[in-house]
Amino acid sequence: MSLSVSLSGLSKSFAARPALKGISCEFGAGKVNVVLGPNGSGKTTLLRIVAGLESPDGGSIAYTGGGGIVPAGNTLMRRMTLVSQWPVLFDTTLFKNVAFGLRLRGLPPGVVSERVDEAIEAGGLGRLAHARARTLSAGESQRAAFVRAYALRPELLLLDEPTANLDPDGVALIERLILRMKEDYGTTSVLVTHNIFQARRLADTAFLMFGGEMVESGPASGFFGSPARELTRKFLSGEVVY
């Protein structure tokens, strides 16, 4: 199963400074939705609202899955997860970090152990399974945070610059896992990134945000091949749009 997300007229301000100005869009089920945009365009705020970490000032957000609207609450929160640009690992072992969310979902210990081992191996961190999280390098921590989300097999995976601290091998690994989650579990991903090349590699649907507004969105082929808006074309070609 996978979740789709519909945003309608979403707005948010911080200290009277608008971060989102009436955003409306849909993140399609089972797709990799990539949100592009320069710094301060509102991408992270959008993701935090979808993740339930912030409340919008206006507008609405609807999660649909399994043939109906999924109401907000703990059940919804356990069907999705967020990996942030600055990964936070709990002060315990990597294994226990990855097991945390699985245990919350009431899975039997044997299943938890199996899923944790599989995820840690998939993330290339097998030799560090029982290392303290605080001893991991920045790149390892970033991969560990992704692995923790991967183990949950979420229906909606929210990613805020998940490869920002990684070397090219690490980036390739995370990208492979994002695609594997889509193929194997039908996971819907919403990926926020500055990396246009990464967006081209992964996106089924692409979105461009600028100044708290959604400038353009559409299937990746059209978005990258023949953007409708001049601002999108300039952004994709690397011209300054800040």
């Binding site: 993740a51 339930g52 970490l53 703990n74 929160m77 356990r78 999705m80 997860t81 967020l82 942030s84 600055w86 936070v88 709990f90 002060d91 315990t92 945390f100 969310g101 919350l104 979902r105 923790r148 949950l152 929210l158």
Partner: peptide, 24 residues
């Protein structure tokens, strides 16, 4: 505060979020 947010995004209930913060 990021510890609390991480626990929330991993599906922790309010009580489990508090417990995780105290554990930290």
């Amino acid at each position: 505060p990021a510890v609390r947010e991480t626990a929330i995004t991993l599906g922790a209930s309010p009580v489990m979020v508090d417990w995780r913060v105290v554990c930290e």
